[in-house]
Amino acid sequence: MSRKKKPQTLPKLYAAKAEAEEELRKAKQREKILKNRMSKLTRNERTHRLCTRAGMLESFLKEPTVLTDEDVMELLAFIFQSEAVQKKLNLLIESRRETQEADEGENP
């Protein structure tokens, strides 16, 4: 014996629609909050990385306060033109990518 569903009334359908729309609004707001948090974390990570690496660079400069930004850029451009530096940089990148891929394979 099969049971037939009772037909829903129009007011109940409107109420269900309103409830679903409210849930959607809340979900969209939650999504917006999460996107903002992700953006802030990404920005904070980048700021930390930039400050750390700038500190590393300054530790190699003899008199960092005497040099201008242009001086440092000129020095970096000179250093990174070197074939040996480019080769080392490519090896480091390749090694890190392999490590990341292995880590992702272990923790999908």
Rank of each mutant, 00 (worst) to 15 (best):
Q29T: 06
Q100A: 05
S82M: 11
E63H: 14
L34Q: 04
Q100H: 08
V72I: 15
L67I: 04
L57N: 08
L91C: 10
L89K: 12
I33V: 11
Q100T: 03
D71Q: 10
L61P: 12
T68H: 07
L41W: 08
E58H: 11
E45F: 03
E45Y: 07
K87G: 00
G55E: 07
R43V: 02
T68A: 00
R53A: 06
L75A: 02
K40M: 13
P64M: 03
A77S: 12
V66I: 04
R37W: 05
D69I: 12
I79Q: 03
S95E: 11
I79H: 01
N90D: 04
T99Y: 09
E98W: 09
L75P: 04
E74C: 07
V85K: 09
A54Q: 09
Q81V: 04
L41C: 09
K32I: 06
Q100G: 05
F60Y: 15
E94A: 02
K28L: 05
V66K: 12
L34C: 04
N44R: 15
L50G: 04
F60V: 14
E74T: 15
R46V: 09
A54C: 07
A77Q: 14
L91D: 06
T52D: 07
E94G: 03
E63A: 13
K35Y: 13
Q100S: 06
E94T: 02
L91Y: 06
L89F: 01
D69C: 08
A84N: 10
T68F: 02
K32W: 05
V85M: 03
R30T: 08
S39E: 13
V85G: 01
I93S: 06
T47Q: 15
V66F: 00
L75E: 05
N90L: 01
A54I: 05
N44V: 11
K62N: 10
L34P: 03
S59K: 13
Q81R: 15
T68L: 02
A77R: 15
K40D: 14
R37G: 01
I93E: 05
F60M: 09
I93G: 02
F78S: 10
N90A: 01
Q86S: 04
Q100C: 06
K62V: 07
E63L: 08
V66H: 02
F80T: 07
C51R: 15
S95T: 10
R97Q: 14
N44H: 09
M38T: 15
V85T: 04
L76I: 14
F60R: 15
E63N: 11
R53N: 10
L34A: 03
V72G: 00
L92M: 11
